[in-house]
Design a protein around this nucleic acid. Structure first.
Length: 121
DNA sequence: GGTTGAATGGCCA
DNA sequence: TGGCCATTCAACC
């Protein structure tokens, strides 16, 4: 399936694959690094490494990717292990705007928003 | 049940 | 080439 295309940019094949999967996530749904890693048959660290350097900040819904524990994780290249970072607030607001409710601590409330139906052709 | 340690795969400089 | 990570899983107390 190649319905969506990525913007022009110099990235590795793995990164492109990760971004393509992210674009497959419908609005109001979220996914986890583990799910992406499983879909790509790689390690969650590799996904994080790819997103860490994501050249398409708003184009790629990196904010729809949470940790396996339901933790919001990081966003915009910044990772705050404590839910006190400004990035988390921004990310939480972004997800809330899409219909994803997050806890005050930055944890996903409705686990039914999980998305793991990736299609890698 | 909660916490700590170690393993993994790939990206950047 | 080396070092660094936006994680995850398992084991132990």
């Amino acid at each position: 399936m190649q319905a969506k295309t990525l913007p022009a940019g110099n990235v590795t094949a793995f990164q492109t694959r990760v971004y393509t999967l992210l674009l497959q996530i419908p609005e109001g749904k979220v996914s986890t690094y583990a799910a992406l890693a499983k879909a790509l048959q790689s390690s969650p660290r590799a996904v994080g490494g790819a997103l860490r350097n994501n050249p398409f900040a708003p184009e790629v819904p990196c904010h729809r990717v949470l940790a396996s524990t339901g933790f919001i994780g990081g966003f915009k290249g910044d990772w705050e292990k404590v839910p006190s970072g400004q990035n988390q607030t921004s990310k939480r607001e972004l997800l809330a705007a899409e219909g994803v409710q997050l806890d005050e601590n930055g944890y996903l409330v409705d686990k039914s928003c999980w998305w793991d139906n990736f299609d890698i052709s």
